[in-house]
Amino acid sequence: MDKQSTYSHWIGLFFSLALIIGAYIVVIRQWLSGYILIAAIIALALGQALVQLFCFMHLHQEHKPRWNLMTFLFMGLVLLMIVIGSLWIMENINYHMSPS
């Protein structure tokens, strides 16, 4: 365990805690509402995922040809297709089906 890696772990813990407490407080205190709240929660969750990927899992320390990063990015693409695609299509079907 080298010193720099230990240091980045502590940085990661600090930012993860800050982001998760931030998201919690924003919701509990009802500082934001509507789409702004949703956008804020998405941003905080993505921020925390990135902090953990870099500070805990050291995704950036890989040497070329960076296969881990490539598979990660491909997974991200498929993930977005599954989640956004499902929501979009089902929302659309719901819109066409509902009598109101």
Partner: peptide
């Protein structure tokens, strides 16, 4: 650590939102 990242998303979207 991967499971923790998954949990972060569940906490943010399922619980908070």
């Amino acid at each position: 650590q991967f499971l923790n990242i998954v949990w972060v998303f569940i906490f943010s979207f399922v619980y908070l939102l």
